[in-house]
Nucleic acid binder design. Structure first.
Length: 623
DNA sequence: CTTCCTTTGAAGATC
DNA sequence: GATCTTCAAAGGAAG
């Protein structure tokens, strides 16, 4: 499991930072003797509550990330409420929810708990690639479980003597010794538990003495880099960083907790705001921001361009910060534990708490009070709303699939243009097996569910209203029948008359023909010779062509995504139907079919694109 | 800086 | 209820 690295070092005396060093950080780098002593005491107290069943190490079972904790620790963990059977992979929360393919779905622990997701089942790490693609980027460099040495993992198998509720210790990434430290981190007196929080701690003490505020960017970057290079284990890095930055023990704990919560710093910040909207603690803000910084690697460029005396504070709150941009939870990658849509962009540096996304949603929603205000103030509100964090829609199944597979396609095809990549992904999506698609539909469903939980007042309407005004019906170029698309021309009753692209929701060939006839310049997309980017796409295309005249090309015969809705949706969703007039002279437009560098050329766009099958895979969707 | 492209699916607006 | 529109992601390109 994710933390087997550190665990192995601890248990085998490997080259990783052992427990001695880890603890030493807290002993030696504390603010003073009192803190040192209290840390030691806490450690001693809490370590006695943790039991390892050493004999189980020889069982040969794969390490399951389980550390038994005596039940009387519950007051210590309190409202932390780890998912009954969840384990953590840093940012990627792992729940044992069985997917159709046997995988597991990553969800924040507390959310899975809230949503009543089933516990039990196999404790397998969610691999967004699974058999499809690549693993998620390991958070803080922790390798996915299947990359871990099997022997190493086998030697780490432990069985809980005093099972944590559900049997999983919430800090599986920590070595046994670190886990003891982790236990000491949970000091009730330090973090009073709030009943309002489900899955989150109550607000952190706002009076924490934060030493990081005196750091310069350069110092912090350097410390980060050194911490990164020192070891691969997250907890180890954190400690090294804490050491190099002279964090106090409590500061380190807060940052650590933010990570362990699994929500990422952005969501934790939101939650903390919910619990204490009046908080203006800059200390807490800094810690949260620091956590977000900690989530990202420091690039050479960043380091080189950093002014040595520049205070760290500026960096922490600047949304334009490179660190923020690339933060997996604050607007960077999907993170898969929680999509960016669920973790809004960081707030402005002015007031980290005054831009709580939930409040923004409420304000911008139809039921908001601002809507009832006069138009004069509405303009002002609009301006304000434009500056507010935008809560994005949860990703649908295809979007999740795209996000996961894009890198793979880019690597295969050496294409960079997203439009081209998306065409390929669209084809592959249709060629996916039912079970494989079902996995993404389920994932998308949970994304929506989680989104609803996090932002109950959010509606897509609010997002839509942020943008342009809703258009009326699509205007036809000439308004005449000649330029009508297949749907309008033949109606739903005569779908057999439709051109095949129309059946598949591509650009209407007949419409383009009419357009070309009218303007004399628009080429027919089918006339374009194209080349697939990979052998797989060649196969897809061949199969597609072979079946293009067959029954599989009939929308009604298609077995779509669950319930066959995909095909219906495709028919009913002509969003991409109207081909816009050419924006470029022929030959210069990369999307011009005559242009050898066009999207169509590069992506081997073949019209019509019919049902695609591949050996062993059922045709999923044809429209 | 903003919009477009391109894909599918979901949601909401419109007819 | 059917249809239509927008928006989620991505990043290059064009305006």
């Amino acid at each position: 499991m994710p933390h087997a690295h550190s665990s192995s070092a601890a248990s085998s005396g490997g080259d990783d930072l052992g427990s001695t060093d880890e603890v030493k950080v807290f002993k030696d780098e504390g603010d003073g003797e009192d803190e040192k002593r209290s840390s030691e005491n806490l450690l001693e107290e809490k370590s006695s509550l943790i039991d390892w069943t050493e004999s189980e190490e020889k069982s040969g079972e794969p390490y399951s990330g389980k550390l038994s904790v005596k039940s009387d620790l519950s007051p210590v963990f309190g409202k932390f409420e780890p998912h009954p059977a969840a384990s953590f992979n840093m940012g990627y929360l792992v729940t044992p929810y069985p997917y159709p393919n046997g995988g597991a779905h990553p969800l924040p622990v507390s959310m899975t708990s809230k949503m009543g997701l089933p516990a039990g089942g196999g404790l397998s790490l969610f691999c967004p690639g699974g058999d499809l693609g690549q693993p998620p980027p390991a958070h803080m460099g922790i390798p996915p479980p299947y990359q871990l040495d099997s022997k190493l993992a086998a030697g780490l198998a432990r069985t809980p003597m005093y099972p944590f509720p559900g049997g999983t210790y919430p800090y599986p990434m920590l070595s046994p010794e670190m886990s003891q430290v982790a236990a000491s981190w949970h000091t009730p007196s330090m973090y009073p538990i709030s009943s309002a929080a489900s899955g989150f701690r109550s607000p952190y003490p706002t009076s924490l003495p934060i030493s990081s505020s005196s750091l310069s960017r350069y110092t912090f970057y350097t410390a980060r880099r050194e911490a990164d290079e020192s070891c691969e284990d997250w907890a180890c890095r954190l400690q090294n960083l804490a050491s190099k930055c002279n964090f106090g023990n409590e500061e380190t704990i807060v940052v650590r907790d933010i990570f362990v919560s699994g929500y990422g710093s952005g969501a934790v910040q939101n939650r903390l705001f919910e619990e204490d909207p009046s908080s203006t603690s800059t200390t807490l803000s800094k810690l949260i921001a620091l956590a977000s910084v900690l989530e990202t690697p420091i690039s050479e460029k960043t380091l080189n361009e950093t002014i040595k005396d520049e205070p760290l504070d500026d960096l922490l709150y600047t949304s334009e910060s490179e660190l923020y941009r690339f933060s997996p939870t604050l607007g960077g990658g999907l993170g898969l534990g929680l999509s960016p849509a669920l973790v809004p962009a960081p707030p402005s540096k002015v007031d980290i708490f005054s831009h709580h996304p939930r409040s923004q949603v409420e304000k911008s929603s139809g039921s908001s009070a601002s809507e009832k205000q006069s138009e004069g103030t509405a303009n002002t509100n609009n301006k304000e709303q434009n500056k507010k964090p935008h809560i994005k829609k949860p990703l649908n199944a295809f979007m999740l699939y795209m996000k996961e597979m894009r890198a793979k396609v880019v690597a295969e095809c050496t294409l960079k243009e997203s439009a081209a990549i998306n065409q390929i992904l669209g084809r592959r999506w249709h060629a996916l097996g039912r079970e494989e698609q079902a996995k993404y539909y389920e994932l998308a469903r949970r994304e929506r569910q989680l989104h609803m939980q996090l932002y109950p007042d959010w509606s897509s309407r609010a997002n839509t209203q942020r943008g342009k005004k809703r258009k009326r019906k699509q205007e036809t170029i000439d308004g005449g029948n000649n330029l009508k698309k297949c749907r309008a021309r033949y109606g739903l009753d005569q779908q057999n008359q439709w051109c095949k692209p129309c059946r598949r929701k591509k650009k209407c060939v007949r419409y383009l023909e009419a357009l070309a006839a009218a303007s004399g310049s628009v080429p027919h997309p089918m006339a374009t010779p194209q080349s697939p980017c990979s052998e797989e796409d060649v196969k897809l295309e061949e199969l597609s062509d072979a079946s293009s005249d067959g029954e599989a090309d009939t929308p009604l015969n298609s077995a779509s995504s669950p319930g066959g809705l995909s095909a219906l949706s495709s028919l009913a969703s002509p969003a991409s139907d109207p081909p816009p007039p050419p924006r470029h002279p022929v030959g210069t437009n990369p999307r011009d079919a005559n242009n050898p560098l066009s999207v169509g050329q590069l992506t081997s766009q073949s019209w019509p694109r019919a049902a695609q099958t591949r050996p062993g895979h059922e045709v999923i969707s044809v429209s």
